[in-house]
């Protein structure tokens, strides 16, 4: 498999038309819609972990079947949520050529991280997705139920993490990792990649499927407060790159740690070629 960024769906396709910038009274329904999204997300998480998720979790079947069921349910709920984000005008997702993502099994899916809802978009396109979730969230009584029934991975330190990841990947779950670690700083292409994704790929002998999230304006970034929904709807185009075959990173000649560095550099190179910088905030885009 080659890594040349050919057949780029995003670049091959007409760029989506930018949305108007809302000011004054026109922003009021957008603001209400934006706040509603947070409310629905929070309530949805709470209600589903009290109703449908326990049913799916305790419905008979092997552990693997039960986890797959919960992952599918989260996938469907997030699909609905992406529809709501689009209805309220926060973000419009363009994901016409993402079959490779939907069909992926037991691979590591990496993506750049421009917005708050990237993981929602990715899971809405994948019926069998897993994530690594920081340990603090596992102590949160509202979240713990969902996280464990979906077979997500707590970050319990490096050595346990690798075993946990191997187990989840063996189950044919795809593992979503944002190598940037946190959302992209506005005005840049991406934050420097941590080597976790590459290390997990090399040590669990797993391919990496790179996803490029292209956005046309900065919205739902880390630098904007949650109660200020974007005035200009964010167009997000989801592009799937060619997979990085783990066999190309042979560790028989060199240490795993070194190969992880090589792979991380190549991943950064791909994103550097494919991603344009997250535009800085501007008021000149008013229409």
């Amino acid at each position: 498999m080659s890594q040349t960024p050919e057949n780029s769906h995003y670049h091959g396709q007409a760029k989506p038309k930018p949305f108007p910038y809302l000011t004054g009274i026109a922003y009021i329904p957008r603001w209400i819609g934006g706040v509603m999204c947070y409310v629905v997300f929070g309530l949805g998480g709470l209600l589903s972990s009290l109703t449908v998720l326990p049913v799916l979790r305790f419905w008979p079947g092997s552990k693997q079947r039960r986890i797959a069921r919960v992952q599918k349910a989260v996938h469907i709920m997030f699909k609905g949520f992406v529809w709501m984000l689009s209805f309220t005008g926060l973000i419009k997702v363009h994901s016409q050529h993402t079959q490779a993502l939907t069909n992926a099994k037991g691979v590591i899916v990496i993506a750049n991280h421009p917005t708050l809802i990237d993981v929602v978009v990715l899971i809405s396109l994948m019926p069998n997705a897993g994530c690594i979730v920081k340990q603090a969230l596992w102590r949160n009584p509202f979240m713990r139920g969902v996280l464990s029934s979906a077979g997500y991975i707590p970050n319990r330190g490096a050595d346990l993490l690798l075993t946990d990841c191997q187990q989840v990947l063996n189950r044919q779950t795809n593992l979503i990792i944002f190598p940037e670690g946190t959302r992209t700083v506005v005005g840049t292409k991406f934050n420097p990649f941590a080597r976790g994704a590459a290390n997990i790929a090399i040590r669990t002998h797993t391919d990496i499927l790179p996803v490029m999230l292209h956005v046309d304006v900065a919205g739902l970034t880390k630098q904007q407060p949650w109660y200020e929904p974007p005035r200009q709807t964010v167009n997000m185009s989801v592009e799937i790159g060619a997979a990085f075959d783990h066999l190309r990173y042979d560790t028989s000649q060199s240490s795993d740690a070194k190969m992880a560095r090589v792979l991380t550099r190549e991943l950064e190179q791909l994103y550097s070629q494919q991603i344009t910088a997250l535009p800085p905030f501007s008021v000149t885009t008013k229409t």
Binding site: G157, D159, L161, R195, G196, S255, A257, A260
Partner: peptide, 8 residues
């Protein structure tokens, strides 16, 4: 170094 390197 990262945490995985530390284990190595």
């Amino acid at each position: 170094l990262d945490s995985i390197d530390a284990v190595d």
